[in-house]
Simulated assay, not measured.
Amino acid sequence: MLTPVVDDDGAPFWGYGTQGELRIQACANPDCGELRFPPRPCCPHCQSFDSEWRRMSGKGRVWSYVVPHPPLLPAYAEQAPYAVIVVELAEAPRIRLVGNLVSGPDAPLNSVPPERIRIGVKVQVVFSRSGLPRWVLERP
């Protein structure tokens, strides 16, 4: 399994993930408040360096997806076919996260057949033991 490369800006995202929370960085300037992902030190809207981490519901919808054939990484060949999805967050449609659609937090990548995926289907975030966000169908 891939592990995240944690930098100073993104460390809180991964830390919250290990606690089972999806939080997104937001500008703490009261005149702005824009959410941003990926995390970065400065707000691209108002240039403020003040930020906070807002808890999200973890609900979203599949905005796009791909089923790699053959898998891009040889270590994942035995789990193919599997889906890599782009999720648009319900409360922040401009924020999109990439992950896998699985049947549970630590399920194999191929635990949901690619034929079940549709653009617009509702999903909910779950977290692996390592804090990696993954996605399950809201109504399996």
Score class of each variant (00 low, 15 high):
Glu34His: 13
Ala92Ile: 05
Asp31Pro: 01
Trp53Ala: 07
Val84Thr: 12
Ala80Met: 06
Glu115Leu: 07
Ser48Arg: 10
Trp135Val: 04
Ala11Lys: 15
Asp9Asn: 14
Arg134Gly: 02
Phe127Val: 00
Pro44Val: 09
Pro44Tyr: 03
Val84Glu: 01
Gly58Phe: 00
Gly20Val: 04
Ser48Glu: 11
Gly99Phe: 08
Pro74Leu: 11
Gly131Phe: 09
Ser111Gly: 06
Ser64Glu: 02
Glu88Ser: 14
Leu101Asp: 01
Val87Leu: 04
Ile117Tyr: 07
Val84Tyr: 01
His45Asn: 14
Leu101Met: 09
Pro108Ala: 11
Pro4Gln: 11
Asn110Cys: 04
Pro133His: 07
Ser111Glu: 03
Thr18Ala: 09
Tyr82Phe: 15
Ala28Met: 08
Gln79Val: 04
Val125Asp: 01
Pro71Glu: 07
Arg23Thr: 09
Ala90Trp: 00
Arg54Leu: 10
Ala107Gln: 06
Pro4Tyr: 07
Pro39Trp: 01
Met1Phe: 11
Cys27Thr: 10
Glu88Gln: 12
Arg94Pro: 02
Leu72Phe: 12
Arg94Phe: 10
Ser111Arg: 03
Ile117Leu: 15
Val136Asn: 00
Pro113Phe: 00
Ala92Val: 05
Lys59Arg: 13
Glu138Leu: 12
Pro30Ile: 09
Arg40Asn: 05
Ala80Ile: 04
Pro38Asp: 05
Glu21Arg: 13
Arg23His: 07
Lys122Gln: 14
Pro30Thr: 11
Glu115Arg: 14
Val121Tyr: 03
Ile95Trp: 03
Pro108Lys: 08
Arg134Leu: 10
Gly58Trp: 00
Glu138Tyr: 06
Pro30Leu: 06
Gly99Lys: 07
Gly131Lys: 06
Glu91Thr: 04
Cys46Asp: 13
Ala90His: 09
Ala92Trp: 06
Glu91Leu: 03
Cys42Lys: 12
Tyr76Lys: 11
Cys32Val: 11
Ser130Ala: 14
Gly17Asp: 06
Arg139Asp: 15
Ala26Tyr: 04
Val86Thr: 10
Pro114Lys: 09
Phe37His: 14
Pro81Lys: 05
Gln47Lys: 10
Val125Met: 04
Pro114His: 09
Ala83Trp: 01
Pro108Gly: 10
Val125Cys: 07
Val67Pro: 05
Arg139Ser: 15
Gly58Thr: 00
Leu89Gln: 03
Ile117Asn: 08
Gly120Trp: 04
Arg139Trp: 06
Tyr16Asp: 12
Arg94Gln: 15
Gly15Tyr: 03
Glu78Ser: 14
Cys43Met: 08
Leu2Phe: 14
Glu52Asp: 12
Asp8Met: 11
Ser64Thr: 12
Gly33Pro: 05
Val126Tyr: 00
Cys46Met: 08
Cys32Glu: 09
Gly104Glu: 09
Cys46Gly: 10
Glu78Gln: 13
Val125Ala: 12
Tyr82Ser: 10
Ser130Gln: 15
Pro133Trp: 04
Glu21Lys: 13
Pro74Val: 12
His69Tyr: 09
Gly58Asp: 00
Val6His: 05
Ser57Met: 03
Pro39Arg: 01
Val125Lys: 02
Glu34Asp: 12
Ile24Ala: 02
Val102Tyr: 03
Ser51Gly: 08
Pro105Ala: 15
Ile95Asn: 05
Ser48Gly: 10
Ala26His: 15
Pro38Ala: 04
Ile117Met: 14
Leu2Gly: 05
